[in-house]
Amino acid sequence: MSEPVLEIDNLSVRFNLKRGVLRAVDGVSIKVGKGETFGLVGESGSGKTVTARSIMRLVPTPPGEIASGTVRFEGRDIYQMSDEEIREIRGQHIAMVFQEPMSALNPVFTVGSQIGDPLRTNLGMSKQEARERTIEMLQLVGIPSPATRIDNYVHEFSGGMRQRVMLAMALSCDPTFLIADEPTTALDVTIQAVILELITSMIERFDMSLLFITHNLGVVAHACDNIGVMYASHLVEMGSTEEIFANPQHPYTVGLLRSIPRLDVQEKFLTPIDGTVCNMMDPPQGCKFHPRCTQAMDICKERIPEFKELSPGHFAACHLHEQPTV
């Protein structure tokens, strides 16, 4: 892999709440190289969004706290930066697209001013230049008649068009890194297909890296080169997309893939993962997945398994793979 653009090393994020301490992210390490698309997959509450937000230093402190670990972007530690430096990173280097465009965009400003203002602030463009560039960006993401649509408000766009506006805004300052947090989850499947294609083509066209957060395994299968699977604040498996789908090594990944209903065959019963996700305020000892795991052993209840490289580039954290190899 080329020199990583983003390097998250042993990141732990805690929230100190009245009810107790919530470990939202626990010892997560991820590297994303230049031009790479990395999918972070997990179910609700697994810590994928907090991981993404901590990259941009968007985790509110307090109650949040970076308990350990570092986040490096292009070799620089995000958490050692001054406020001014992090503002520059957010504006010009890393951009983010959120799940719900209606709440991420401001309803009382036109889309033109929302896309244009950062251009003037970050890139020092004049009002006229910013307007021209905004029209260009709206055109690029496929908004019909951008020269008139620029003066519309968010409510005048459909869900799919709003997501295009958000993408135009994210891409307007030429970022090198895009974080997309469930960008297609609120959309219908036909619109989702269009937005996915658009994101993929933009990534290629501008030679960006992508961190794609989703719960939908179908989406990462087609949008990402590499995948990390999160369960209960831990990264449990990581590898190339082909490897993860063809040869999953963690029982949770295996269970997740089995529980998806298929389009090509109809099985009478699915194979779900039994039980429910543990209470994150009071997680079990040892491997967080052991109460639901069909292959759990005694050691799983005591010790958290190490995140080990099983084959080049394929990592998993499971005691099944920790038997001493002779």
Binding site: V189, T190, I191, Q192, A193, V194, L196, E197, N216, L217, G218, V219, A221, H222, A223, T241, E242, F245, L257, I260, R262, L263
Partner: peptide, 14 residues
């Protein structure tokens, strides 16, 4: 348009 959870299947498109 359905993205199937299998990277070998064709990518979703409209």
């Amino acid at each position: 348009a359905v993205p199937e959870a299998d990277p070998k299947k064709p990518p979703p498109r409209l």
